Computed example of a mutant assay.
Amino acid sequence: MELLAAYAPWQIGAALVAALGSAYVRGLTGFGMAILLVPILALALPPVEAVLLANFLSLFIGLSEAKRLVRGAEKTAWRIAGLVVLFTPLGLYGLSVTSADLARFLIAMIALSAFLAVLLPKRSGAEPGAVATGGVGVLSGLMTGYAGMPGPPVVPYYVGRDIPRETAKTSMMLIFTIASFAGLVSGAALGLLAWRLPLLAALLFPAVLIGNRLGDLSSGKIGDTLWRAAVGVILGGAALAALVRLV
């Protein structure tokens, strides 16, 4: 517990509330945990710590659902995840040399970009070409490292297509789990990983489990149209909240 003494009680409390709420959204929509969690954590913690803490929590919850994700994900998820692993270190390095204020601003802009992207017209369920899939992987890797948010390119790639909801959810979750692992490995390699972070993540994880379970139960009670509307509302709310906090 001495390692956690570096955090004030209000910081831990804010992290608990953010973890519970963002995990509920993950269970409901298949994404959104990092998009909601990182901007809030970055107000209470240094941005690098906020990103790495979100990576720990995303990895923990993803591993708890590994069988479901591997079984249900689309093949494109593996290709995107491979590119995420390659490009995450570059994004994390960029974050490490950016001032805290600028990093918070850019993280807010990334959250806004996710909302705008999901408003694009819905496409067919056919798998996009190699260029589009590769572009999503590269951008997602850079955003994983810089903001702990692989979602902005990934969410419209799956949610914007006419594919089963479970396929979209498990594909996104698989990518996010692998992305979080890549972020942690990159952080350790760059000497940015403080050992108190996994302890704080372990403290927050029960809240993540509870929130994720509640969100998953809620997801089973709503139709696809309402689910897609929830995706847009959540992304828009996250972007607005991040911008308001900057002001």
Rank of each mutant, 00 (worst) to 15 (best):
A81F: 13
P89T: 08
A189C: 00
E65F: 08
T225P: 00
A77K: 12
E49K: 11
V185W: 03
T133S: 10
G82P: 13
V244A: 13
F176M: 06
G211W: 02
G30Y: 02
I163H: 06
K122I: 04
I210W: 05
M33Q: 12
A114S: 11
G220H: 03
L3W: 04
F31V: 04
L190Q: 14
A23L: 02
R123Y: 06
V131D: 05
L57T: 02
S171V: 06
R71T: 05
L102S: 15
L16R: 03
G94E: 10
A18P: 00
L53F: 06
I107M: 13
A189L: 08
G91Q: 12
R245S: 14
M173P: 03
Q11H: 13
W10A: 15
K67Q: 05
L200Y: 09
L43C: 12
A66T: 07
G62V: 08
F87Q: 11
G151S: 14
A14N: 13
M173A: 07
G145C: 06
A8L: 15
P153N: 07
E2K: 11
V17N: 10
L3G: 05
G237L: 09
V208C: 06
I210P: 00
I163F: 08
L69K: 08
M143D: 02
R213M: 02
M172K: 00
R68N: 00
A239I: 05
A5D: 12
V154R: 01
L214P: 03
Q11V: 14
L36A: 09
T76E: 15
L59S: 02
L45F: 15
V118S: 12
I163R: 07
P153M: 01
A147R: 03
V154Y: 04
G237H: 03
F56N: 03
A207D: 04
Y157F: 15
V136L: 03
L41A: 15
G232Y: 06
L52V: 10
L37A: 13
V233Y: 10
L120T: 11
G27S: 00
L217A: 03
L4T: 12
G232Q: 09
L120Q: 14
A179Y: 12
E2G: 02
S140Q: 09
I163D: 08
L119V: 04
A100M: 11
A103G: 13
L197S: 06
N212K: 06
T167R: 09
E2S: 13
I80S: 14
G94C: 11
A54M: 09
P164L: 06
L142P: 14
G160I: 10
A126D: 15
E166D: 11
G215H: 04
A77T: 13
A194W: 08
P153A: 03
V244M: 12
N55P: 09
A100T: 14
I61N: 07
I61H: 10
F87I: 05
L193D: 01
G148A: 08
R161T: 04
R68G: 01
E166W: 01
A81Y: 12
F60C: 01
G21R: 09
L226V: 14
P46A: 11
G160H: 12
